[in-house]
Simulated assay, not measured.
Amino acid sequence: MHLKAFGMIAEKIGTAELELENPGTLAALGETLRGRFPDLQSAKFGFAINKKLLQGDAEIPAGAEVALLPPFSGG
């Protein structure tokens, strides 16, 4: 699985792109990332799978590109 990180999330993990084994779901990915990168313990971030914003515990398809998105506001 290809992971892209943006903004403060990329800063906290020390890279903008990373290859990881697919953990199956977004919830499992969040746990994996927080375990591997302790600076993410208190960070809030969202997910996009193949350029679609998702919430909850969505399944990550094989070969997916997952983006970690910092909180953002618009108006």
Rank of each mutant, 00 (worst) to 15 (best):
A5E: 01
A5M: 13
K12D: 00
L18S: 03
P23C: 14
K12W: 05
G35T: 11
A43S: 00
K12A: 09
F47L: 09
I13V: 13
G56E: 06
L33G: 03
A16K: 15
I60N: 10
I13C: 14
A10Y: 11
N22W: 06
G35A: 14
Q55T: 13
F6P: 05
K12Y: 05
D39M: 13
F45A: 04
A48I: 03
R36P: 11
G30S: 14
E21G: 00
I13Q: 03
A48W: 04
E19P: 09
T15Q: 15
K52I: 11
K44D: 11
R36E: 13
T32A: 14
L54H: 10
E17M: 14
Q41W: 02
G7M: 05
L40H: 08
G35L: 06
T32Q: 14
E11F: 10
A62V: 14
A27C: 01
E19N: 14
G24N: 03
R36S: 15
T15Y: 10
F45E: 02
G63V: 02
L18V: 02
G56F: 07
L40I: 09
G46K: 07
D57F: 06
L54A: 10
K4R: 13
G56A: 01
F47A: 03
A28R: 11
F37Q: 04
F45N: 02
K44A: 07
G14L: 14
K12P: 01
I60D: 08
G63H: 02
A62P: 12
P38R: 00
K44Q: 03
L18Y: 05
E31Q: 14
K52R: 12
E17I: 09
L33T: 10
K12E: 10
L20H: 08
L26Y: 06
G7W: 07
N50E: 04
K44L: 07
E17G: 06
N50C: 04
P61W: 06
A16D: 14
M8Q: 15
L53T: 07
I60M: 08
K12T: 04
K44P: 03
D39N: 04
I49D: 11
A28Q: 14
T25F: 08
F6S: 00
G30E: 14
L54F: 06
L20W: 12
E21C: 03
K51W: 07
A58Y: 03
A58K: 13
T15A: 15
L54V: 15
F6Q: 01
L18C: 12
F37C: 06
I9W: 02
L53Q: 13
L54P: 01
L26P: 10
E17C: 09
T25P: 09
G56Y: 05
A62R: 00
E11R: 06
D39I: 01
L20N: 12
A16M: 05
F37I: 12
E17P: 02
E59W: 03
E19T: 15
L53S: 07
S42G: 11
G7D: 11
A5C: 08
I60Q: 11
